[in-house]
């Protein structure tokens, strides 16, 4: 195992555990919200917020590389693609 190193920036283990639980709960709530929201544009915006939550989750679980990917893909790129698709479908229906 890796020995614990204490630096001025070290967060107490209990605090980190609490943070992890809070973020996990937030992610569960966010995922449920994304599924339950039926209005398309709102659902996409909720998905974007959910992407940010997931990014925070990855950061809290010490995966900053994945955080960066999730921020760009989950919170920006995927919602943009979905919004553009919705705009296209709407134009067609008009």
């Amino acid at each position: 195992m890796i020995a614990a190193v204490s630096t001025p920036y070290t967060v107490p283990v209990g605090l980190m555990d609490a943070l992890q639980v809070i973020v996990l709960v937030l992610v569960a709530v966010g995922a449920t919200a994304v599924v339950l929201i039926r209005a398309h544009v709102r659902q996409v915006l909720a998905l974007s917020v959910y992407g940010v939550l997931l990014a925070v989750l990855f950061l809290v679980f010490q995966a900053p590389d994945v955080t960066l990917s999730e921020l760009a893909v989950g919170a920006v790129a995927l919602p943009i693609v979905l919004l553009l698709t919705l705009a296209k479908i709407r134009k067609r229906e008009e």
């Binding site: 590389d65 960066l68 990917s69 760009a72 893909v73 920006v76 790129a77």
Partner: peptide, 18 residues
């Protein structure tokens, strides 16, 4: 160095165009 990587960097670059 960490954190870094071509995938993350690439997606973030694309975000700039968005």
């Amino acid at each position: 160095t960490s954190p870094s990587g071509g995938f993350q960097g690439g997606v973030i670059l694309a975000t700039a165009f968005i």
